[in-house]
Amino acid sequence: MDKIKILVTDDDREIVDSISIFLEADGYTAIKAYDGLEALDKVISDPGISLIILDIMMPSLDGIQTLMKLRQEKNIPVILLSAKSEDADKILGLYAGADDYVTKPFSPPELMARVKSQIRRYTMLGGATTPPTKLCVGGLELDTESKTVTVDGAEVRLTRIEYRILELMCRNVGKVFSAEEIYRAVWDNDIVVGDNTIAVHIRHIREKIEINPKDPKYLKVVWGIGYKICSQKG
C-alpha cells in the first residue's frame, strides 16, 4: 500500500522540516512547500495528497487566502497552523473551510494526533452512511445499542456514568446543560449542594474523547452556566 502524502506549508523552513520528520516517523510521506502559491501548485499537480498543514502568516499568499482558493477545487482536510491564538482567529479559519486549527507553539504529539484523526475521517469514514442507532457529532460517534463510543473511528472506553452523560448531551447538540440537569437525568436524583462531581466526570470524558482536553472540540464548558456538546464548527 502507498504511503499517505501530506503537504506541509510554512514560511519557516525549520518548522516545515521538523513537522516532516515527525510525519515520516509516523509513516506518512511529507511534501514541503514554503508559501501559499507553491502549496496550491503542489496540491493541484499531485492528486495523491490527502491532507494539508497550512500556516496562516505567510508571504505572497497567506494561509486563509490559500485555503479559500483551495476549497474552490478540492475537499481534502486542512489543518491550520498559526501564532494567533484568539478565538476570533480560530473561528475565521474554521469558517474559511479549515478542518482543524493548531496554535503555535504546538506540541508535536498533539499535532500528530490531529493529523491522524483527520486522515482516519478522510480515508475511512468518507462515504459511510450512519445507521439509525448511531448518534454522530462530527467525528464523535455513539452507538446507542452496543453503548460504544468512537472518535474518528477509534474506540474510546467510557465508564457507564460517563457514557450516560455523553449520550444525554449528544442527543441535544448545542443545548447547554446545567449541573443539576445532568444530575437529574443521569442519576435520577436532585443535586447534592455545591458538589463538583459533574465537573470531574466531564473532565474525565474530555480527557478520553478530546485530542487536547485544554482546547476541546466537542465537549465544552460554558463557564458559570453549564456544559454543551458543540457541532464541528464555531
Binding site: G194, N196, A199, V200, R203, W223, G224
Partner: peptide
C-alpha cells in the same frame, strides 16, 4: 453567571 457553579467547574477541571 452562577459564580458557585463556575468555581465548582474550575475545581473540577483542576482537582
Amino acid at each position: 453567571l452562577d459564580l458557585a457553579l463556575l468555581i465548582n467547574q474550575s475545581l473540577g477541571e483542576s482537582d
